[in-house]
Design a protein around this nucleic acid. Structure first.
Lengths: 113, 113
DNA sequence: TTGTTGGTTAAGCATGAAGTTAAGTAACAA
DNA sequence: TTGTTACTTAACTTCATGCTTAACCAACAA
């Protein structure tokens, strides 16, 4: 298992680019070859492949080459790692608000509505 | 409402840096001043403030200045926007697998275990 | 009013990311 | 075996990011 921290770096970095998000979006609907993935974009093929490399480095996408065609697919486990990081922070925040609510309720019960 | 796409760019970009994630983590436990936020990091104050600007630009954090102290807090709505984007893609992926399962069950019922 | 604290502004620098073109390779099709 | 397809590699340009230091300003404390 790689360093989790570094992994999140690569993950969020990968998702920070609209082209790469569009690729993830495409792959969430099913596997695709490199040129299929490239088709919607007004960009050279090498550029597309560089985006793909970023996605693969982050663990969000994997690929295998059969013959001369490289087929790419989404790696949903990786997606949920990013999702979980966000959710953990939101949860911490929400819990803090709850404790604050309790505190206010305990210390000034007469001012409650 | 700003362009959602651009907003996600800034959001994920902001979360791609470990220093900024640490700041979000800190702020998820409650508000903090700029210098409080800066304390854990081995980095000049201007550098910390630049990270803060990235977080504010993304909508993940807001701040107000009172006297000479600027107090920062997390903006959990923004967090859940990023979370939702990820979740939507995972959901699409899962549904695709479900349909694939149905398809296989319908076309080759005799090969099921 | 003088010093200290808390933050801001500006300028500069090193690195890396996003794109390009050009040339190369390996598989399949005729 | 010759051409086309599907990438791959390499070299290069441009722009953005993440820092730095130095100087500044405004609020509060003595």
């Amino acid at each position: 298992m790689l360093n989790q921290q570094a992994n999140l770096d690569l993950m969020f970095q990968a998702l920070a680019d609209p082209t790469r998000r569009a690729m993830v979006d495409r792959l969430s609907r099913g596997p695709a070859s490199v040129s299929e993935l490239a088709k919607p974009f007004d960009m050279s093929l090498p550029a597309v492949v560089q985006h793909l490399q970023a996605l693969e480095a982050s663990g969000l996408v994997s690929s295998q080459k059969v013959g001369r065609v490289r087929t790419c697919q989404i790696e949903p486990e990786a997606l949920s790692l990013a999702e979980q990081w966000i959710n953990d922070r939101r949860t911490t925040w929400v819990r803090r608000l709850d404790r604050l609510g309790e505190f206010l309720a305990e210390t000034e019960p007469e001012t409650r509505t």
